[in-house]
Simulated assay, not measured.
Amino acid sequence: MTTSAPPRSGAGRTAPSAPSQRVMWCALAGVLLVCALAVLVDALVAVRVLGVELAVLAVVRLVAPPPGPVGVTARSKAFDVVFLAVAALAVLALSLAPNIAPA
């Protein structure tokens, strides 16, 4: 008489893949680029790059499948997208204000 052993837990199943951290590392690289631009080139250029980065992160958060990219997801998708888009628009609008750059 042969008895088969009960299946081990997880046998035959693939482990769920860990969420990709690519977006988080790209966002961090963007922030480091903004810091380098502010020091080496011009603060106004750095602020505009920051505004573009925030807009790109808003779009990424909008189109990413649930649960969302690591490092960008904080609350609900709607909250994250609105917050990032408003921040991007505010930063870009303020960077276009007259007399912002020293003469």
Rank of each mutant, 00 (worst) to 15 (best):
S76T: 12
P67S: 08
L54W: 06
V34A: 15
R13T: 10
A85L: 15
A87N: 01
A78M: 04
P7M: 08
L40T: 07
V86I: 14
A43K: 10
A27M: 10
M24C: 09
V23R: 02
A29T: 10
S9K: 11
A58V: 11
L54R: 03
G10N: 11
A78P: 02
A74L: 11
A38Q: 12
R22W: 07
A36T: 13
M24L: 12
G10A: 11
L37K: 13
R48N: 14
P16A: 01
F79E: 00
V91Y: 06
A64Q: 12
F79M: 00
L94C: 10
L84V: 03
V52D: 07
R8A: 04
V91M: 01
T2F: 06
R75Y: 06
I100W: 12
P69V: 07
L94P: 03
L96A: 15
P19I: 00
M24E: 14
P19H: 00
G30I: 10
L89H: 05
P67D: 06
V45A: 14
L28A: 12
V70S: 04
I100G: 14
G10C: 05
T73M: 01
G30P: 06
R61D: 10
V52Y: 04
A29D: 04
V70F: 01
S9I: 08
L57W: 11
F83N: 08
V39H: 08
A11S: 12
L40A: 10
T73W: 02
L89K: 04
L62K: 10
V81M: 04
A43Y: 09
V56T: 13
A46Q: 08
A103W: 07
A43R: 13
S20A: 02
V41K: 05
G51R: 03
A29L: 09
L94E: 07
V91N: 04
A11L: 07
A90K: 02
V47L: 14
